[in-house]
Design a protein around this nucleic acid. Structure first.
Length: 958
RNA sequence: GGGCGAUUGGCGCAGCGGUAGCGCAGCUGCUUUACACGCAGAAGGUCGGCGGUUCAAAUCCGUCAUCGCCCACCA
């Protein structure tokens, strides 16, 4: 839609406007850092890297929330004219992708081994080509303004280069090493996992008490009783341990007692180790060095044999004797049964314990001893801890820093090798002939020492090893810069020099360790200590409406694309943003989105009203607006300067007066200017100015919820409920007031659309492109963000007071009408008596509003004066220091009125009592802030007057 | 075993030191010059319990309770 449409359809249909608008933005090139020429490169840049979704992923509610927040920040920065880029891409997701492809093969009756490594990796690339852009397309459906022209992927060539650079550097510095450890093994994925890729789930299992017969009785013991949660591992036991200080078993240790391992008929030692807790179970622990991390440590300390009893799919292997071939579950049953038969099962207890599960496939993890590659983390962590401590990186909400510190200060070495085929292969080469080993940036085939053929390590790297480099690899690192040559300065990379560190990293709390912390560490290592981003937003977790985590197994997930189809992307975005507060969870009820779709509809209809009134009049109203643009900026400003406001911003009230930077765009982007004709005009401009300040205060960046609430309240409760209603009157009051109100309707709507755009990009731009605001920019996406300092000129307390009074009178008359069941069409006479210090000002203000009051409250005769007396047969209300008399001659029902007044009196009396008590309190008078005391006095005085007035009324009814 | 969140009208949430707010639902009226995905009006909580600090607490401190999350090698 290159041409701006000149009409809004009667009904708001999100699905009709979203896709064409997105295509228009994309086509226009607004998503790049240049923003089609509208970016001002003199301004501070704004860069965000998206947490790269898995290529296998489909958008879920967490993504929807996270990307809404990033887009809000990105769009606002872009409107501020900053060179803005939201870097997008996907993660190759080693295990997840490999699983997908293996599933696909399985459906054809094949395994990856049938294909072989090379063909399998090719199949992964095919898969990625076919399905891998799903999530990117979904981001577009949300309206995310990412830089799609430069999509990154963690298996790209530049990425491979970066990985090898980092790996080799760390290897050379001894930070990467290979070792035999107990690692977390997923027998379904058949790979190692890092500690934080294991999810611990509290489960009720059993504690089996097993009798291990001693080879020779010692100190009265024929056998020892060990307690275990995993009886099948006994097949691999190579020792039995007790605590050295445990008197019960001291004789056994001293005698060098031995146990004959049941079923296996293996003689194993009894020994003492501090690890054993005397108070748990029987105080005797069976030791299985190959299948338990603690047992492994003990095994090392006591030179125990490691007997691996499991295959990589967790079936019992030949070391398990007659149990070989059973699954671990079958083996458990069989072992227990066999022991029971031998009379060696003493008892079984229920026992709660945490069991590790694979974070990808939920299979129970098997601790398993094997050779893996590790990164030594302590040294990398130290500067990263410092960076958060001294504020170079700030978490929002701040409390997440503690989580980060706790993990970083207790960091353990990172197991980075995975027994997968899909991923970055570990760049370590071995010469089997002379034993040479090295990590290499470039592939090599021959041994530099002996010339024999080299063999590359079979394993690939943990996916997080690549993701941790995301903030700088996506910006050109390492490029052609040689290793070591550049570690002193960022200057070697022009893009990084200009756009690194990035500004914000927004993510869910569950990857603070997996990803955020590692980015800080690796970025600081690779880029001479520079942090990768300055602010980290940890957004709430989206739960279902009952407060449960959304998950596949619960089946309680919600598809954001369905929400978009049903409510529109804008409603979904706004509905998510408004729920972002400092809390850590967000209960999401899709029904509630109806509210925000209604809000979008409200905006739409308000715009239709404005447009209708520009066209509706006989003499083309758009021309009046156009005049306001051309000449009048002066006029609009004159009105402001008359109020004693600044003369800055005069020619461009409310919007930063940036020249359109495109050569062909030429002149200043001139907007329609406001014209403060009536109190209502000055009021709405004042309220708009205040709103703009709220959205630009120091907390606004991360306080999405309160920004959204402020926008909602302004647009609906102030602009629609009052200003548009007042405008209806002002439109009929003659040429000059009509011209003014038309300009203000356009100006305020225009400004509000700008403020709403980051949260609701579609409706706002669709309307904006139709509205004759005079701004020559082709899209709201690249229009200027309202400048609070310029708008400050419109803050007008007197106008705010005037409209408050008007609203008070109107509301009062309506309420009286409702309580007497008087038809809205029945006109009433109203008298207002002003009082107190403000009597003269209030009288003048209300007199000026007489016509509007008559219209809005259906008043026939209206009078206001400081000494007005109450007409007979009238109801009384005291509000805002006004006494409002509604004449109800012939209608008044003394009983109803007395009941109403009595209710009011009770409330007022209660309030008065509370305040009086306060004022009688010496401590309050002495210690409270003077302005608080003053306000309390004034409020009390007002209540006193109200009570007197009500009493007088009640008396007159007697 | 530690740590962190949450606890405010029927429901979902704001407020976080000066007389309790919003939205939904419910109630009463409305074809009012955009909008019934609407307009107007009324009703409804004393802010989980207890104790403390303060002139003043939903708001700060302590403690308990309930729900949830994270971390932790007790087999």
């Amino acid at each position: 839609m290159p041409e701006a449409p000149d009409v809004l359809p009667t009904t708001y249909e999100p699905s009709d406007i979203e896709a064409p608008l997105f295509a228009f933005w994309l086509e226009a090139g607004y998503f790049s850092r240049e923003a089609a020429g509208f970016a001002d490169f003199a301004k501070a840049p704004h860069t965000i890297v998206i947490p790269p979704p898995n290529v296998t992923g489909v958008l879920h509610m967490g993504h929807a929330l996270n990307n809404t927040l990033q887009d809000i920040l990105t769009r606002r920065a872009r409107m501020q004219g900053r060179p803005t880029r939201w870097i997008v891409g996907t993660d190759h997701a080693g295990i997840a992708t490999q699983n997908k492809v293996e599933q696909k093969l399985a459906s054809e009756g094949l395994t990856r081994f049938d294909l072989g490594r090379e063909a399998f990796v090719a199949a992964c690339w095919d898969w990625r080509k076919t399905y891998g852009s799903t999530i990117i397309e979904q981001l577009k459906g949300m309206g995310c303004s990412c830089d799609y022209a430069q999509e990154h992927f963690t298996m790209d060539l530049d990425y491979a280069k970066a990985i090898r650079r980092v790996f080799v550097d760390w290897y050379r510095e001894g930070l990467i090493y290979r070792g035999l450890r107990i690692i977390n093994w997923c027998p379904r994925c058949t790979t190692a996992l890092a500690d934080d890729e294991v999810e611990h789930v509290e489960e009720t299992g059993h504690l089996w008490h097993l009798r291990y017969p001693l080879v020779e009785p010692v100190g009265g013991f024929e056998y020892l009783v060990v307690a275990t949660t995993r009886p099948e591992t006994m097949l691999g036991d190579t020792g039995v341990a007790v605590n050295p200080d445990d008197a019960r078993y001291r004789a056994l240790v001293e005698a060098g007692a031995q146990v004959r391992l049941p079923l296996m008929d293996r003689v194993i030692p009894v020994f003492a180790d501090d690890y054993v807790d005397r108070n748990f179970g029987t105080g005797v622990v069976k030791v299985t060095p190959a299948h338990d991390p603690n047992d492994f440590e003990m095994g090392m300390r006591h030179n125990l044999e490691q007997i691996n009893i499991l295959t990589e799919q967790a079936y019992i292997n030949t070391n398990g004797g007659r149990f070989a071939g059973l699954s671990r579950e079958q083996a458990r049953e069989a072992v227990v049964a066999a022991l029971d038969e031998l009379g060696l099962l003493e008892r079984v207890e229920e026992h709660d314990h945490a069991v590790g599960h694979c974070y990808r496939c939920a299979t129970t993890i098997e601790p398993w001893a094997s050779e893996q590659w590790f990164v030594a983390m302590k040294g990398l962590a130290a500067p990263a801890i410092e960076a958060v401590r001294d504020g170079r990186v700030a978490f929002h909400p701040q409390r997440w820093e503690n989580i980060y510190f706790h993990w970083m200060e207790n960091i353990r070495d990172w197991c980075i090798s995975r027994q997968l085929w899909w991923g970055h292969r570990i760049p370590v080469f071995y010469c089997d002939s002379c034993g040479w080993i090295d990590a290499l940036e470039e592939d090599a085939t021959v041994c530099p020492i002996c010339g024999a053929a080299l063999r590359q390590d079979e394993d690939v790297l943990d996916t997080w090893f690549s993701s941790q480099l995301w903030p700088f690899v996506t910006q050109g690192w390492p490029g052609d810069v040689a290793s070591g040559a550049s570690s002193e300065t960022l200057a070697a990379w022009p893009e990084l020099a200009a756009y690194y560190p990035t500004q914000v990293l927004s993510t869910a709390r569950d990857i603070i360790f997996l990803w955020v912390a590692r980015m800080v560490m690796s970025s600081m290592y690779c880029l001479s200590g520079t942090v990768p981003f300055t602010d980290v937003i940890i957004h709430p977790t989206v739960l279902d409406k009952y407060g449960n985590i959304m998950s596949k197994s619960r089946g309680n997930g919600i598809d954001p694309m369905e929400l978009i189809a049903e409510y529109g992307a804008d409603a979904m975005r706004f509905g998510l943003a408004i729920q972002v507060t400092g809390a850590q969870d967000l209960k999401f009820d899709k029904e509630k989105l109806g509210v925000y779709r209604n809000f979008a509809t409200k905006i739409w209809n308000a715009a239709r009203f404005v447009l209708m009134n520009l066209e509706g009049a006989a003499e083309g109203a758009t021309e009046e607006v156009a005049e306001g643009v051309a000449a009048g900026a002066a006029e609009g400003v004159a009105a402001v300067t008359a109020e004693g406001a600044t003369d800055a911003g005069a020619t461009d009230a409310g919007v930063a007066a940036d020249a359109v930077p495109r050569a062909d765009a030429g002149a200043v982007s001139q907007r329609v200017t406001p014209q403060a004709y009536s109190a209502a005009d000055r009021w709405i401009l004042s309220r708009l100015a205040r709103l703009t300040h709220v959205l630009n205060n120091e907390h606004a960046d991360f306080d999405f919820g309160s920004s959204a609430r402020a926008l909602y309240a302004f647009f609906w409760n102030e602009f629609c409920d009052w200003y548009i209603e007042l405008a209806k009157g002002q439109l009929t009051q003659g040429d000059e007031p009509r011209a003014a109100v038309r300009r203000n309707l356009v100006f305020v709507l225009d400004t509000a659309l700008r403020l709403l755009h980051p949260m609701m990009p579609f409706v706002t731009d669709r309307i904006w492109r139709t509205l004759p605001h005079g701004d020559e920019r082709p899209s709201l996406m690249v229009a200027a963000w309202p400048d609070p300092d310029v708008l400050s000129a419109y803050i007008d307390e007197e106008a705010e007071r005037s409209i408050e009074l008007l609203c008070a009178v109107v509301t009062t008359v309506r309420a009286v009408r409702a309580s007497y069941g008087i038809s809205p069409r029945q006109e009433l006479d109203v008298v207002v008596r002003t009082g107190g210090q403000r009597a003269a000002d209030d009288t003048r203000a209300l007199k000026a509003q007489a016509a509007q009051l008559r219209r809005m409250a259906k008043i026939a005769h209206f009078a206001v004066a400081p000494d007005a007396s109450k007409p007979p047969q009238s109801s009384v209300n005291i509000i805002q220091g006004l006494e409002v008399y509604v004449v109800l001659e012939g209608l008044i029902d003394f009983a109803v009125e007395r009941a109403r007044l009595t209710r009011k009196r009770e409330k007022a009396a209660g309030d008065w009592e509370r305040l009086s008590k306060k004022l009688a309190n010496e401590g309050f008078l002495a210690k409270a802030a003077p302005e608080v005391v003053e306000k309390t006095r004034a409020d009390a005085a007002e209540l006193e007057a109200e009570l007197a007035q009500i009493d007088e009324q009640l008396a007159s009814f007697a």
